[in-house]
């Protein structure tokens, strides 16, 4: 790929330059905002926030393949499940530490993602949605199957424990607080990686492949490789979120990974903002806290409200919550 062919595209994503001081201020504010809940929230709410960050990470994974690359996946719950199970199996059967399971989890999810992304190449957008939808529906059944019951624990699932806070910390913190810090740290790292990926040459290639595959190919982009690798990366990130969720909940079972997880991630992506890194964060917060509120009305209410909000966003705010913020910001700046 010749460099000057790619250059014209890069001007499109040019942003107003920020000084090093401004950047430092942003980072510090972000760190403060992330650490603050440690001191403000009691253990249950901290756990919920941990789960929200995990969901945000999973939505980020989905956003890379569906938002930025335009391959609609309705089955990301499957990768979430694979990540959770890899961590749970390694921790409970082989006594690995949580940290050690992250790399195998990411690798296996990446491989599975590659495996799903490969046939996806031959399918148009809709067929992929259909295949991944079927995958999501079939996952609990596969997890329950007798052949792998020795490893997966069958219907009963597996119990694991949260990592203990290390002793070298200056402050004595609880396991819940440590779990929150671990989650935020890993999520922040993944968000940063995704941010860099999307901002750079590969990100532009992903979007070009989404917006005009023929033109992208004519410009010399290997769309097939891009698509399968996007799928693998996306599965990897969602899988890491799954690993985190396994230790945060301290339990995995087939019925926690129904078709509903995939739908939740999809709803989170649309509501937060399709093709938006920041939107994934809003999506995670949304999918965790809105059902909690809605559940007070009825067991079925979260689903109904999800559906209504999903359709309302698609009709009124197709670029999601992040898009809304962007528009407000643009208006304020224009004044």
């Amino acid at each position: 790929m010749s460099e000057n062919l790619v250059l014209p595209l890069s001007t499109a994503s040019a942003r107003p330059a920020t000084s090093a001081w401004q950047r430092l201020a942003f980072v510090l504010a972000g760190v403060a905002l992330a650490v603050l809940p440690l001191f403000l929230l009691e253990s249950f709410h901290l756990f919920q926030l941990t789960m929200a960050v995990i969901m945000a990470l999973a939505v980020l994974g989905l956003n890379i393949v569906s938002g930025y690359n335009g391959q609609i996946s309705l089955g990301h719950g499957a990768f979430f499940a694979v990540g959770a199970y890899v961590t749970a199996i390694l921790m409970s059967h082989l006594d690995w530490s949580f940290w050690a399971t992250l790399a195998p989890s990411a690798a296996i999810c990446g491989l599975v993602g590659y495996g799903v992304g490969f046939p996806a190449l031959r399918l148009g957008g809709l067929y992929l949605a259909l295949t991944t939808f079927s995958l999501a529906v079939a996952v609990p059944q596969i997890l329950k199957h007798k052949a792998i019951e020795d490893w997966t624990g069958g219907v009963q699932g597996l119990f694991i424990t949260k990592p203990e806070p290390p002793t070298w910390l200056p402050l004595a913190i609880t396991a819940d607080q440590w779990m929150y810090l671990v989650t935020v740290g890993i999520a922040a790292a993944c968000f940063l990686l995704a941010w860099n990926l999307i901002r750079g040459r590969i990100g532009r290639a992903l979007m070009a492949t989404r917006d005009h595959p023929t033109a992208a190919e004519a410009m010399g982009m290997d769309t097939a490789t891009l698509k399968t690798r996007a799928f693998a990366t996306s599965a990897m990130i969602t899988g890491i979120a799954g690993s985190l969720s396994a230790v945060a909940v301290e339990f995995v079972a087939p019925d926690s990974f129904t078709f509903g997880v995939s739908i939740t991630l999809f709803v989170g992506m649309v509501v937060g903002g399709v093709a938006s890194i920041l939107g994934s964060l809003f999506g995670g917060l949304f999918v965790l806290f809105v059902p909690n509120i809605a559940e007070a009305i009825s067991k079925a209410a979260p689903g109904v409200i999800y559906g209504i909000i999903l359709i309302a966003f698609l009709f009124i705010l197709p670029d999601g919550f992040a898009g809304l913020l962007r528009r407000i910001a643009a208006k304020l700046r224009g004044r």
Binding site: I263, V267, V270, Y306, I308, L310, I311, L314
Partner: peptide, 8 residues
């Protein structure tokens, strides 16, 4: 998205 919303 609309179909999924309808399903939900």
């Amino acid at each position: 998205g609309v179909f999924i919303g309808l399903l939900l």
